[in-house]
Design a protein around this nucleic acid. Sequence first.
RNA 1: GGGUCGUUAGCUCAGCCCGGUAGAGCAGGGGCCUUUUAAGCCCAGGGCCACAGGUUCGAAUCCUGUACGACCCA
Length: 502
Amino acid sequence: MELNELEQQRFEKMSRLQEAGHSPYPHRSHRSHTVQAALADFEAAEKTATEAPVVTVAGRIISIRVMGKVAFAHIEDGSGKLQLFLRQNELGEEALALFKKVFDLGDFAEAHGVLMRTRTGEISLQAHTVTMLAKAITPLPIPKEYEGHDGQLTRYSAFSDVEERFRQRYADLAVNAEVREIFRTRSRMISALRTWLDEHEYLEVETPVLQPIYGGAAARPFTTYHNQLKQQLYLRISFELYLKRLLVGMYERVYEIGRDFRNEGVSYKHNPEFTQLELYCAYTDLQGMMETTEQMIAYTAQHVLGTYEIPFKGQLINLTPPWRRIKLRDIILTGTGIDYTTFPDAESLRTVMRQRGYDAASTASWGHLVDNLLSEVEPSLIQPTFVYDYPIEISPLAKQKSDDPTHVERFELFIGGMETGNAFTELNDPFEQEKRFVNMGTEQADEDDESHPMDEDYLRAMKYGMPPNGGFGMGIDRLAMLLTDKHSIREVLLYPHLRAKE
RNA sequence: GGGUCGUUAGCUCAGCCCGGUAGAGCAGGGGCCUUUUAAGCCCAGGGCCACAGGUUCGAAUCCUGUACGACCCA
């Protein structure tokens, strides 16, 4: 192991510790209190004027101030931080000297002693013993913090290099408490979604990640190979087709929270693998899905943040149901002045788009162009909005409107200027579904990128009879962005994908 | 894929325009200091200036390319 100068120094301190008869990596801690519990116990004792508690706390040393025969340090655990007051009178000369010589910022240590208040009023542990729990060899970039009179926390040279934070997420988490909080919020969010779904009789299921035929969305897959089966497999791009098969199998409400993989570009709202929630509910339709969606998300916000009003990018998003509902045609017409329904083919739509100054690739299909127009208005959809009635061309798994066969019962959900969800009255007519697959197939021949292959087994399932149902899918990462006011998907992924270095 | 910007000490940054061989604060090392909290004071360290070429007597600095990243556009 190659050590730089600073690491070499710490390595030598480790040896000194061993020479003094202590292990730098002992087997166990004897913690009696978390920091939070210690603070609570002390305050309780103060109130009742009983003896100050004797505790053992453990954690990472995040500050040290040595002043001769006394030293102060802060120790941080998962619950908070506590000042240690290390006095020669209490510790003994040898122990204090050892602390000063071999303990560094970043080390895990444990301290045993009695709680007290210092002259400035800070609750502190007057340490009788200090023990190393795990020596840190590489110095953590622990910032200095300063709390102003107004309680405002100022931080000096915090570890902020975006690339290094993501490449060494452990260091990022170790020194940036607010980053730890993001993933707590994310976890509470997923837990709240599960609670809501469980309470509404949804059954959580798991379907294959490795699929012989990918489907359910328009995206390029990752490809892999099973050696023994001698079979090409794909990492799933959605769960849709497997979940809907379960409705054929007589489950009425199912959901899955899991990872999808799309072999496409990386951006502030795209990562090659991302977490998706999909749910399907028999005997309901698009209208029911709208209600389900707004109830579920509003519940989640309430449970995670305690409010329906969430700050995002300097604006306040109000998630109180019911949410705005607007037709795709109308939102595009208002935003761009183009009524796509009057330009029913790619050629005429492309022409009018170019006239109005919008980009319209010559290779793009009509559906693709409509999608481009929607992208133009997407950033303005800050408050939660269901955009509904989509052209059939870009919705091969949704059921047609009974009064307009050119459009399907589908909505996309926009919040904070991002597409966060997608739902249909699901197509359950096997003959119509087969036609759609075939049509998609011929379109791919033209476009060649986002293929949507025929899934014979899915059609077979549907031929057994699939109840009418509504389905909804949502990007969990995007919802996490909204609830944490983070503007890049990487901030809400513990290990976002980065290009390999060297 | 295109454009713009960035990469200098463990961390956060200055230096680059206008070329002369590397700076600060924090962290670390050696001292002083028994209630500090960005503790303070004294002393001495620490760098393949992302990488590879080019221009030049001389390059962190100017030019070209590569890698990685950020932002914008497609």
